[in-house]
Design a protein around this nucleic acid. Structure first.
Lengths: 235, 235
DNA sequence: TTAAATTATTACAAAAATGTGACGACGGTA
DNA sequence: TACCGTCGTCACATTTTTGTAATAATTTAA
């Protein structure tokens, strides 16, 4: 049974009719959908919550879909979101230009069945990398499928937030996150809590990790926190 | 993490009490604020100095806030200023119409904390940071992503100021900085500290770098300091 | 060489940042 | 209903960082 949390697809198109059609088709296929009618709105949605995949219309007023994709690619946080470009163009040149930034493209008119199929294909080959593969450092192991964390084969009891924190850390080792970034990516961009709340949850995470493993989560003074591996210290 | 020059927020509202409340809240959050009580005044303020973000009341006499936003969007100079619409309307129609021109909207009554949070979120995503590549000279390596510095793979414990100092030096090798320049670029242009304080921090940086690497930071007598690489000396 | 100018070093107290425990709120559940 | 786990926030403790002044060391100019 593939009852993971449903994938979220962000549909970016200026025509509401197309958005609606796609939304219905995708929701029937078991996806969650979010819509945006322009690039600015899309960026806002993304800031609020990272989608698992995006369908972007090539031709849009102001910022074109292509330009939106380029901007997404430049930002490390969004660079890995799989993209499907929706285009009416059939020319080879356009195809190639589009593929440089997109993972796939579909020319209008298109069959919904085909779209869904391609979408699933892309998710199949892009998600296992980050989301479903267990991450492991030393004897600490995080299993995204079972949402379980084990240390030396002992199961750790993590709260939901602790789990997401650890997952973010373990999938981005040696990267410092500010409290704001953590709030954005663990809590979600649309939740407003005190920055210091992060400290408390770091504390709780460290506590459940135990004395040995808690060293993995380091304080970066004046900045935030970092999951550090493979470095020697000389303090 | 607000060591950048303070952002300026232009508040446009016909009710002075609301303007004042917003101004106080925002200034407590570290922003500079400018106020305007109508669209004309707002345009004047903008002409005098471009704000980093605007909060605009939807309902205003004469030109409505929405109309003001539209005019701003039409002008290339002001089109990219992020906008937050302040509105009492809750209807879906209003939301959608508003979002076409604004980056976000907040319905009255609103929580100041939420407003500040959203405002920061908008600034965060409209001011994308450049891609940060590690800098490396010899066995000294500074990693902006992890905010860590290693010497021969040993992690150095730098304080925030030491880190920023070293980052400035390493990204501008062989360039001499005066103490004033260092204060501007490491401390930020809006703080007042003694010039001699720089000396102390240089000393601290040299100390944490260790005897070998401390030679990299050279004193330029009568001028300031310089990060020197690839040069041999024969005094 | 000496005196003046400049920088290095040290110590210390204030300020800032982070760690920590506790409390109440909230939703789910027996 | 009461219980339980989780969460956000606060108050207070602890640690680190920072600015400054005092003093030592060094360089420069005459």
């Amino acid at each position: 049974m593939s009852q993971q949390s449903p994938r979220t697809v962000l549909i970016v198109d200026d025509e509401s009719s197309i958005r609606e059609m796609l939304a219905i088709a995708l929701e029937m296929a078991g996806f969650k959908t979010v819509q945006a009618e322009n690039a600015a709105s899309a960026l806002k949605q993304i800031a609020s919550r990272l989608p698992d995949l995006m369908i972007v219309d090539w031709m849009m007023p102001n910022v074109s879909g292509l330009e939106l994709c380029r901007r997404l690619r430049r930002n490390p946080d969004t660079a890995s979101i799989p993209l499907i470009l929706l285009t009416a163009r059939v020319e080879e040149g356009a195809k190639i230009t589009g593929l440089e930034v997109a993972d796939d493209y579909i020319t209008k008119p298109f069959s919904l069945r085909e779209l869904v199929a391609r979408l699933k294909a892309i998710l199949r080959r892009t998600t296992p990398k980050g989301i479903e593969e267990p991450v492991e450092y030393g004897n600490l192991r995080l299993d995204p499928v079972g949402k379980q964390v084990t240390a030396s084969d002992r199961l750790l009891a993590l709260s939901p937030i602790e789990y997401r924190l650890l997952q973010l850390f373990m999938t981005n080792p040696n990267r410092a996150f500010s409290r704001t970034q953590l709030l954005d990516r663990v809590w979600g961009g649309d939740v407003y809590v005190e920055e210091r709340t992060v400290d408390v949850h770091i504390r709780r995470l460290r506590k459940t990790l135990g004395t040995e493993l808690s060293d993995l989560i380091q304080t970066v003074r004046g900045m935030g926190y970092r999951f550090t591996i493979g470095t020697n210290y000389t303090d």
